[in-house]
Design a protein around this nucleic acid. Sequence first.
DNA 1: CGATAAATTTACACCGACTGTAAGTTTACG
DNA 2: CGTAAACTTACAGTCGGTGTAAATTTATCG
Lengths: 228, 228
Amino acid sequence: MVEHAPAKASGPTGLRERKKRETRQHISNTATALFLEHGFDQVRVADVAAACDVSEKTVYNYFANKESLVFDREPAMAALIREALGPDGVGKTPVEAIVEVIGKEIELLFAQREGDDSDFQRVSRFLDMIEESPSLRTAQRDLMDHLAQVAASAMAHRAGLDPLDPEPQAAASALIGIWSVSMRALRREASNADGPSGARAAVLADTRRAARLIGAGLASFATTARDQ
Amino acid sequence: MVEHAPAKASGPTGLRERKKRETRQHISNTATALFLEHGFDQVRVADVAAACDVSEKTVYNYFANKESLVFDREPAMAALIREALGPDGVGKTPVEAIVEVIGKEIELLFAQREGDDSDFQRVSRFLDMIEESPSLRTAQRDLMDHLAQVAASAMAHRAGLDPLDPEPQAAASALIGIWSVSMRALRREASNADGPSGARAAVLADTRRAARLIGAGLASFATTARDQ
DNA sequence: CGATAAATTTACACCGACTGTAAGTTTACG
DNA sequence: CGTAAACTTACAGTCGGTGTAAATTTATCG
């Protein structure tokens, strides 16, 4: 039962493992391309399978549902949040930490270049695609909610509280709200033709405005136009 | 084209209208009862239709999807929020306003007595039903998100801002986060056997803790157990 | 190298939510 | 009472998703 299996320590280096990773990536890429071109709801899973020369069941062997063909970065984002809000980021407030994570994620969105489109156009079309599909919007909400739970756990663990206590839960909701603001700004700016650098600055500005309010508390929210 | 139609002004008082309201209510009640008894995912829409002596298509004529058979109070809740955060509630901060709305909604949950179960048991089973069904949990998130947009619009309108601006959006997320905390507390307390009055107090206590943090700002969040 | 065991893929049959459509039934109204 | 509009129904069909058992592929060991 116990083999000594030379060099099996950490790197998953079998032919089987490699093929699996490649197949998964191939399906995900093909699917995203099809979705970007024709819209999420206009492409059937059967179409994706056909385009990959693979059976429909195989698609479902790799991905839990149609939506996760699109939202593939959830585990990575959760890890970023755990890292930023966990024991490592002791020096920073939760708001500062989440703003940094958001910044990283935005950079990454712009960085993944693929095909001959500019990064900017790709991001814009990706966000439009989500916006235009009710099921993708719902999936995004599910994702955000999961990230909120991760954030609550991280903060609670660091502060020695129960993750289900009111404070970590409320704090996590507010933090993820900042993220939503950033995504909204990104969508708006990606449609504008101000170019990537201007867009990045504008998104960051909106993010900071949201962060400031959440950090300082809603008591500071202006209830009338005259308030400041 | 223009008839003078006596007494048609406001009250929809036709036989047709009355029957429609009755049918809709009958379907909703029957469905909820079936869901409470067997679980949301264990009951097919066809089962609901059969139990109502109605065709499956009729169910879908009245309700957009299976989930809205359960979440029927969304419009009323949205109206409450608009009222509380809109021009009427000028004297209160958004946090105070939402806490009041939550209080009302909790009262209402306990008040609707039906069948021979105590209100308490009914609420408990209703929340369990939601918790146990992934699709109902997702629908609840969609509902919460919609309420957040309503809250953002109301606050923005009152303050003379754009609803899509960072401040109203971030504020709305945080406010709805308080609501989520209350729901969580309600679910927890409803399972305890402390009785309705104790439960109500406990839920209110958690709500206030969340509201306090959101109102004062996350800068006041304790990052370690020693902080206070 | 070849046989055997394990993991994957595939075809296939199936479920359940949901949507058109066209025909039948009920209500409104003159 | 008869006609028009609203509503319900049966029915056929689409699509996402799942279970199963038979191929097919890969890993492992003698």
